[in-house]
Simulated assay, not measured.
Amino acid sequence: MSEAMLRLSGVEKIYNRGQTSEVRVLNGVDLTLARGEMVALVAPSGAGKSTLLHIAGLLDTPDAGRVEIGGEDMTGLTDRRRTMVRRQEVGFVYQFHHLLPEFSALENIVLPQLANGVARRDAVARAQALLEQVGVGARAGHRPSAMSGGEQQRVAFCRALANGPRVLLADEPTGNLDPGTSDQVFAALTGLVRGTGLSALIATHNLDLAARMDRILRLDQGQVVPG
């Protein structure tokens, strides 16, 4: 079996409501994502997909269980170390692109690299190469407001991969697009994932897109089961 790039073991997350009741969102989640694997995570709204992705990407901490990235246990890391691992090892894509509106497409991809200590010349070259790979190289100098929704999301994909992460986490990355654009954007995302060999966990309501991935997992009553 390929090396596990992301592993969740017995992960639990509980939210309190008032003083007497609690909501157990994740109830002993076990999940393994192999190197180079593209996995769909399917569940209804409110089932805990976003919570799971936030814990997997070190944006949130579980109440129990452990998270491993690249074989390293993330449990108990300092906030500074978690931030460093997240910046270097994990890429995030959301339903809405969240690009910085005052910067061009190229600059949106350059900035996270500069924050990670990459020289500007190298950062620009990588940003342009990523944009070319998803078919929007000619839009490098455009601000988000001058781009279509599909183009904006492709730029967001490039930004997520700017620092060469080993794990990509995507939360409904095509959920805000029409079906035709969704297919094109998903094809661009697949090309990036396959071209770089990173591991991707993609939450989606779109069963057609899910069927194109290596595996489908379903979040059911706080646990991950085969789809």
Rank of each mutant, 00 (worst) to 15 (best):
E3F: 08
L6K: 12
S9C: 09
I14M: 06
Y15H: 11
Y15F: 15
N16A: 15
S21G: 07
E22L: 02
V23Y: 08
N27L: 04
G28P: 12
G28R: 01
L31K: 05
L31V: 10
L33C: 13
G36K: 08
G36S: 11
M38T: 08
P44Q: 07
S45Y: 04
G46L: 12
G46I: 03
K49D: 00
S50K: 10
S50L: 07
S50R: 11
L53Q: 01
L53M: 09
L59P: 12
E68R: 11
G70Y: 10
G71D: 06
G71K: 04
E72P: 10
E72A: 13
D73F: 08
T75E: 06
L77P: 09
D79K: 11
D79T: 02
R81D: 13
M84N: 06
R86P: 05
R86L: 11
Q88S: 14
E89K: 15
F92K: 10
F92T: 04
Q95C: 08
Q95S: 11
F96E: 14
H97N: 14
L100R: 00
P101E: 05
P101F: 10
A105L: 02
A105F: 02
N108G: 09
L111M: 14
P112L: 01
L114Y: 01
L114V: 14
V118I: 14
R120S: 00
A123I: 06
A123N: 05
L130R: 02
L130N: 07
V134I: 05
G135M: 13
G135T: 00
G137E: 05
H142Y: 11
S145D: 11
A146V: 05
M147D: 07
G149P: 06
Q152W: 05
Q153I: 03
R154K: 13
C158R: 02
C158M: 11
R159M: 04
G164N: 15
R166K: 14
V167T: 00
V167N: 13
A170Q: 07
D171R: 03
P173E: 09
L177K: 04
L177I: 13
D178V: 06
D178M: 01
D178S: 01
G180S: 10
V185C: 12
F186W: 09
A187F: 04
A187V: 01
A188F: 06
T190G: 00
R194Y: 02
S199K: 05
I202M: 00
A203N: 00
H205V: 13
H205C: 09
A210M: 00
M213W: 03
R215E: 07
I216K: 08
R218N: 00
L219Q: 03
D220C: 07
P226R: 15
